[in-house]
Nucleic acid binder design. Structure first.
Length: 524
RNA sequence: GCUCGUGUGGUGUAGUUCGGUCCAUCAUGUCGCCCUCUCGAGGCGACGACCCGGGUUCAAAUCCCGGCACGAGCACCA
């Protein structure tokens, strides 16, 4: 039996065959004219809603390792999680996953930095803030339950021996020992009687699982190195998969958004949840992100390079940390908008700072005052002899060209000498922006008219009396390029972001009593 | 090697659930023009993509099969 659609399609095809497609078009126009109109495709804006979300009871989490401040990559986690929370009237738990004392040890200062950076980006503080290292009793208790329940055991095989057995789907000898023996080994572990590497607690899983990574995965291991925040108190520390699984359950997390490199974590943790009889949260993934200009982001790598003196500190403008971006003048809402526009996909992507900069420009442009910055300054003396309007001693220039900031910058021409960039000397007839047309003859700027008389190039300039020496520092790859010049000395304040006309946005870093003002380049 | 995942313009992204309204969305980029007293902003236009090969179907970016490419996990790191 043919469906109605098929019947109609056949009819239409028959019509087209006998009388041509025009006949079909005409028939459609007569019966159903709106079917002939094409509607344009639209792009979905913002994030797709979370699956199986109940508005008002969504709990998400953002769980960085506090071994350094947040990087631009973490910004994705903060932006996406906080955005989902906003969409679903949910909460975000900021959790410090600081259960490794050895390989990626926590940096005590980072806890506060991260809370602060989270708030900066999300626009409000995290709803709940917890540290895994504060919650050790809970994890140890669950480990004990797991052993008592017979779905976890203490394994004393070496890592390589275990790997061999696991790869051939064989049980290790420790697996079949009694619960009593396991509990006594467990006590020895937590009392510090077994040295590092001497034992590990494993979660029992099917040994014939197709994915070898999942078979009897390790949940806790021994670390005798003191923890920067809680000292020597614990000898056994949970691994990420165990700690995170228990804590997500404790916090009632409903949705986990994590990197797809953690897909196996989801599978391991689901097995653990089954042992405990819990329901695993909804899980979503994103792919790996690289930024052309920076490559990947390794917190431990940066930490080393800072210690070696390659970078001055975490806010070194060459680094992809949030601290550095913030210092340079990136706006939180622009960064957030950028990440939300990228959305949540499992594709591995490589993005360009140019795109982020464009988001930033559109946010900061209207609130940045203009200033003149003349590089490689060359002095010219104004000559008014040929100016029809006569001599002028002051210039009044808008703080912002489109008036989003009202008022003007008042320039006094002082002794009549001005500065322009050496590169602008290529033409001898130019226009001083917002001021006058001039002809350059040797060291003289002969004023031809105040009004714009033709289409000649417009250059930025400065009266010598308004100029102060300044340096503009630009982070380019792993170097700094420093340009010297003269900055317009009009209402300069440390920390302000200004747009240097024809140069780009920059932040005023310092204004010393004597010497050059320091400017840090943001972007064009 | 085993396991898992992903392939839409230069870069990202929408559309893929449920085949037709898709000669494929938007942003960014590049180029050109207009406007503007910045090389900024704004406006207009151009460029440029469904990984490949089969199959199903009247109809495939979308479904099926087979390749290929790339990435990740297989840590007593997170």
């Amino acid at each position: 039996m043919k469906s109605l659609v098929e019947t109609e399609v056949d009819a239409a095809n028959a019509l087209a065959a006998s009388q041509g497609v025009e006949a079909v078009r005409d028939a459609l126009a007569a019966t159903n004219p709106e079917a002939l109109e094409r509607q344009k495709q639209q792009k979905r804006i913002g994030l797709k809603p979370l699956p199986n979300a109940v508005d008002g009871s969504v709990v998400l989490r953002f769980a960085p390792n506090p071994n350094g401040p947040l990087t631009i990559g973490h910004a994705r986690g903060v932006s996406i999680n906080s955005q989902f929370a906003e969409m679903h009237d949910g909460k975000v738990v900021l959790r410090f996953d600081d259960t490794d004392t050895k390989i990626k040890p926590p940096l005590p200062a980072a806890y506060e930095w991260i809370e602060d950076e989270y708030e900066w980006l999300a626009g409000k503080p995290a709803d709940i803030v917890i540290r895994a290292s504060d919650r050790m009793p809970i994890y140890l208790e669950h480990a004990k339950q797991m052993i008592s329940g017979g779905f976890g055991y203490v394994c004393r095989c070496s890592a390589s021996d275990f790997k061999q057995l696991r790869d051939s789907k064989e049980a290790c000898p420790c697996r079949e020992r009694s619960i009593e023996n396991n509990l006594s080994d467990w006590n020895a572990m937590i009392e510090g009687e077994i040295s590092e590497g001497g034992a590990v607690v494993r979660v029992k899983t099917g040994l014939d699982l197709p994915n070898p990574a999942l078979r009897d995965w390790p949940a806790l291991r021994i670390q005798h190195t003191p923890h920067p925040m809680v000292g020597q108190k614990y000898k056994v520390w949970p691994l990420l998969d165990f700690q995170s699984a228990i804590e997500d359950h404790e916090q009632g997390v409903t949705h986990i958004v994590r990197g797809k490199d953690l897909m196996d974590s989801t599978r391991k943790q689901t097995l653990l949840y089954q042992h405990f009889g819990w329901k695993y949260p909804e899980t979503l993934y994103w792919g790996r992100v690289k930024v052309h200009e920076f490559g990947g982001f390794s917190t431990s790598g940066m930490r080393n390079e800072i210690e070696e003196g390659i970078y001055s500190d975490w806010d070194d403008a060459r680094l992809p940390t949030l601290r550095a971006l913030r210092r340079r003048g990136f706006d939180a809402s622009a960064l957030r908008a950028f990440w939300i526009d990228l959305g949540l996909t499992q594709k591995d992507i490589s993005i360009s700072m140019q795109t982020i900069e464009s988001f930033n420009s559109s946010v900061i442009d209207e609130r940045c005052e203009r200033r003149s910055f003349v590089r490689n300054a060359r002095t010219l003396h104004l000559n008014w002899n040929n100016c029809p309007e006569g001599r002028v001693d002051d210039a009044s220039i808008a703080r912002h060209p489109s008036g989003t900031i009202s008022g003007s910058r008042e320039w006094n021409l002082g002794d009549g000498s001005i500065l322009i960039e050496t590169d602008d000397l290529d033409n001898n007839e130019i226009r001083l922006k917002d001021f006058a047309d001039i002809e350059i003859v040797e060291n003289e700027a002969r004023v031809q008219s105040l009004d714009r008389s033709d289409k000649r190039a417009i250059v930025h300039w400065l009266p010598t009396s308004m100029a102060r020496p300044a340096t503009l520092t630009r982070a380019v790859e792993s170097d700094f390029i420093i340009e010297e010049g003269m900055i317009e000395n009009f209402e300069l304040t440390v920390g302000a972001i200004v747009q240097l006309e024809r140069v780009g946005f920059a932040r005023i870093e310092s204004i010393p009593k004597d010497g050059a003002i320091e400017l840090l380049y943001l972007h064009g």
